[in-house]
Design a protein around this nucleic acid. Structure first.
Lengths: 163, 163
DNA sequence: TATTGTTATACTCTATAACTATA
DNA sequence: TATAGTTATAGAGTATAACAATA
């Protein structure tokens, strides 16, 4: 499922395995923790950024690096849960502002605690100084050579079947 | 597509973003680099471990943490490319040994160079001492609290439609 | 003409279920 | 009965295409 080898026999350190494995495990922990209050990671992400400022679906999609169609279903879920509402933008009648409800704001505060807690727990085993060092080095990597993905080839798709 | 926030406004360090983003970017680079010699990461993984010892599909699936059905298509791809062959096991007539061809061995050597090179490149920007520190801390994380995924709920599926 | 949000749907990936042949 | 490998296919996730309203 994760695809890169656990590599007991590898000679070089296997960065792919280290990053894939840790990010995968953290993701499962995060999903499980957020599921307890009925959220997905995406819902949390949208909720938090919609709370910071008046933002359209488009803007939130860009921030969270999602497709606009993914944003539609995410906002649908937030609306159905009563955590956010679509409001027409006052400046652009095509656009919809994602407005967080009072209940949504409460849930966002709680979900942020959960997210921080899961991160906390993951880093807890580091001895005092190592934690800061680790985060500093991870940031260096994320902002350096591993900042921008290389684009895969566009998949090429048949035109839609009418129905 | 990656789902966790880039978070310029977040107060706590966002470990989810750091791990998701870096692993995602590294994966795209690895896929692009291996694609140049016609391999996927999975094909490389199977090739390398099949070369180390006589191994069945089942054993290789466990090592690479893949489903056995995923292994079938991976070995199909290796066979079609002339890099490996299925040979009956001498001890268990149900099992198939994945035997790497001479061409497959050459490709495996090359793909291992590619993998190491991509890792090398990613770590290259670290100043001398930091690289070892980083790998040590990543290993600590991967073997510690982020070693085992929590199981999501089983999806529950309809019986197969006969056809 | 271009863009926002929407619906419908195609595609990829992965894993379950069912099957065959062995054990 | 249980297991290795296979086939068929269900389902999740995601992105493209087409469309309606508006810019």
């Amino acid at each position: 499922m994760t695809a890169m080898t656990p590599a007991p026999t590898r000679t070089r350190p296997d960065l792919s395995y280290l990053l894939d494995h840790t990010s995968h495990v953290l993701r499962t922990r995060m999903a499980a923790a957020l599921a307890e209050i009925g959220l997905t990671a995406r819902m949390h992400c949208v909720l938090v950024h919609a709370l910071e400022a008046e933002r359209t679906q488009n803007q939130l999609a860009e921030i969270g690096d999602m497709d606009k169609t993914t944003m539609v279903v995410t906002v649908d879920a937030l609306e159905k849960a009563g955590l956010a509402e679509r409001r027409p933008s006052s400046t652009d009648r095509r656009a919809r502002i994602v407005a967080v409800t009072p209940e949504g704001a409460k849930v966002a505060a709680r979900s942020q605690e959960i997210v921080d807690g899961v991160h906390e727990e993951a880093l807890a085993s580091f001895p005092p100084g190592d934690r800061e060092v680790f985060l500093r080095l991870m940031n260096h990597l994320a902002q350096g050579h591993l900042s921008t993905p290389v684009a895969g080839p566009a998949p090429a798709r048949r035109p839609r079947q009418r129905g």
